[in-house]
Amino acid sequence: MVTMTSESNSDKASSSLAKKSNVLTAPTASISEVAPNILVYKKMEAIIEKMQGENGGVSVRTVKAFMRNWPSVFTGSDLISWILKNLEVEDVTDALHLAYLLSSHGYLFPIDDHALTVKNDGTFYRFQTPYFWPSNCWEPENTDYAVYLCKRTMQNKTRLELADYEAENLARLQKMFSRKWEFIFMQAEAQSKVDKKRDKLERKVLDSQERAFWDVHRPMPGCVNTTEMDIKKAYRRGASSHGSGSSGAAVNNNPIEQINRLISLRKMKLERRTIKVSKVAESLISYYEQYSEYDHFLTSPELPNPWITDNTELWDVDKNSRDVPLRRVKRWGFDLRELLNDPVGREQFTRFLEKEYSGENLK
């Protein structure tokens, strides 16, 4: 027997969510500068605020069943009925489309599914806390996503098990951040301990809201990524190729004006950094750490260094040795270019391809 109890629409989790140690630092940049589609967000948020209103809002309740509770939820049919009743929407299809847009942008979400969509049935949904609304200009990093996935693996709850695509993303991120994975794991472990101290129902709500946030910014395969399109870039592309009115037509017909406009755009792009300096420095450090073992000026070899002495014994050993040194084989694993640039590696790779009847591919 399922029973339902009414409760206030004010989300208790939103106040404590901002203090959580496992949420990202809120963006401080100017919203008008960072989010050109802020007007769309504001219209959506105005609708959401009406839905969450104490008088005439969507009925949010706690659903209790045998050995399981669903706090702060509403059904898809309740949502569609509210849209048809309170907004200027007459068709159920249009109401479903509006609900889907709100869900795909992360303002509401299904509690048991990674696909952010809405169905006109008894499926349970939950409102997202304003802390995670897209108007806050979130730009989460891959390290934050790695901490989140790592934290999920530490909790033995069925509702927190990783989906197949999340497990693949976790493996890819672990390989990408192999040098600082220990730090990521420690951070996830600390956040998991903080979560365990929270109230059970509050933890359910917070976990689902955090999951929905990542479903928006790291959607499952086949789902629309609403954060992928940058309207500012689209506007710049349109402005560079299409004029407005007679002035635009004059520019398009004048090749000198077109070239001058193209030069100014190129100058603007040269001044703008496309990659953060910290990311460039991190990749350079990783590269030199990887190859430091093979640089005899940084790592002294066991035999005399032929670059600073007249002794070529180090090179002679590599030439005359029957077995390929492990250090040399290890370098082949860096990338295919290293393998093919080494004559011995290229020979070994050719033998392998001949076994698979594909040796002609290399030739």
Rank of each mutant, 00 (worst) to 15 (best):
262 L>N: 01
268 M>C: 06
235 Y>A: 08
229 M>R: 09
244 S>N: 07
255 P>T: 09
254 N>P: 02
243 G>Y: 01
229 M>H: 08
266 R>W: 14
266 R>T: 08
270 L>S: 10
247 S>I: 08
229 M>L: 11
240 S>V: 00
272 R>K: 14
272 R>D: 13
233 K>W: 09
251 V>G: 00
262 L>G: 02
269 K>M: 14
241 S>M: 13
248 G>C: 02
267 K>C: 12
227 T>C: 07
262 L>I: 10
243 G>S: 05
238 G>W: 09
258 Q>S: 05
231 I>K: 06
237 R>V: 03
239 A>M: 05
244 S>Q: 06
242 H>S: 03
238 G>K: 07
264 S>W: 04
243 G>N: 01
236 R>T: 14
246 S>C: 04
235 Y>F: 07
232 K>A: 15
241 S>F: 12
273 R>S: 15
271 E>S: 11
238 G>D: 06
260 N>R: 10
267 K>H: 09
242 H>T: 00
253 N>M: 12
239 A>P: 00
257 E>G: 09
249 A>V: 08
267 K>S: 11
271 E>C: 05
237 R>T: 11
254 N>K: 01
240 S>Y: 00
255 P>G: 02
259 I>H: 02
256 I>M: 06
242 H>K: 04
230 D>G: 05
255 P>E: 03
270 L>I: 04
236 R>F: 15
231 I>T: 10
236 R>E: 15
239 A>N: 03
239 A>Y: 05
267 K>Y: 13
257 E>D: 05
264 S>F: 08
254 N>T: 03
269 K>T: 14
254 N>G: 03
246 S>P: 01
247 S>A: 12
236 R>Q: 14
266 R>L: 14
239 A>C: 01
261 R>L: 14
255 P>K: 03
247 S>F: 11
252 N>G: 04
233 K>Q: 11
261 R>N: 11
268 M>W: 04
249 A>W: 06
259 I>M: 07
237 R>W: 12
248 G>K: 05
237 R>D: 13
249 A>F: 07
248 G>N: 02
233 K>M: 13
231 I>W: 09
267 K>W: 11
272 R>Q: 15
257 E>Y: 10
231 I>G: 01
271 E>A: 11
240 S>G: 06
230 D>N: 12
238 G>N: 10
249 A>L: 12
244 S>I: 15
231 I>Q: 07
248 G>M: 03
265 L>Q: 08
246 S>G: 01
260 N>Q: 10
250 A>H: 05
238 G>R: 08
243 G>M: 01
264 S>Y: 06
228 E>R: 07
258 Q>M: 05
228 E>K: 10
